[in-house]
Nucleic acid binder design. Sequence first.
DNA 1: CTATAAACCTGCTGGC
DNA 2: TGCCAGCAGGTTTATA
Length: 277
Amino acid sequence: MPELPEVEVIRRGLAPRLVGRRFLTVEVGDKRLRQGSSPGQLARWLTGRRLMELNRRGKYLIFRLEGGATLLIHLGMTGRLLLGVPRNHGPHVHLFFTLEGGVTLAFQDVRRFGQALVFAPGEPLIPLEQVGREPFSRRVTPEWLAERAQGRTRPLKNFLLDGRVVAGIGNIYACEIMFAAGVHPATPAGALSLEAWQTVLNETRRILKRAIRQGGTTVNDYLNSRGETGLFQVELMVYGREGEPCRRCGSNIKRLVQAGRSTFFCPRCQPKKRHFS
DNA sequence: CTATAAACCTGCTGGC
DNA sequence: TGCCAGCAGGTTTATA
């Protein structure tokens, strides 16, 4: 469920409650996550250790522990990290941590696409090696995007969803970014002009920032660390609006399938020919 | 290289 | 009311 804004909102909610505290206990449920370290490994590297930092890369949360171990958490589609709920908070709590000061943290994930992997000090954080650049990084420029897209025929939608290039953009925000930039989702990535990349990048940053400020987007499952929904869903221009009128021009919002995922767009605000180089 | 499709799971909705 | 198809915020792997 969570894309970059939702993960960032969760991080900001967790950090003040968790950073500086020691983990006291780690409980692991019987159902397996898609990728999860063993109960023994989790206990070994977390128990008794203080959380030094809580960072984010793309859609990953990075828990830096006293002693140098690292816990990586990815929320998949339906993962939640909830503060202060009981161990038996529904049937899908797969990890339950207690920390100093009576603080508890539950990892709940209905579909179990999430990951919770612990790495010993010095061990390479393999999942992060695939993660692309942060959208807010100064190293992401129109020139760099154009270079990465050079000669590529893949649709812009697929390019934006490829977390190995720019990290953190998922299906909702990819649709919203392309609408805001006025680009048709099937435009070959390599056909965008430098000016078009500048627009796409500006809109990416504007929308992600706004979504973070609004506490993320709740369509179905997303809740922040306090169990609250986001607010950005009321600002969505195209996502999930097939058959409804475009909020800008009134045209019918269309849906198409790209890379096995629904893409929503306005055929009038996102014409095919604009922005070609 | 490119692009689907399938795989991993559960739950909800809409049509009949 | 029941059943079934289709869909859902993600990522990886296989296949053509």
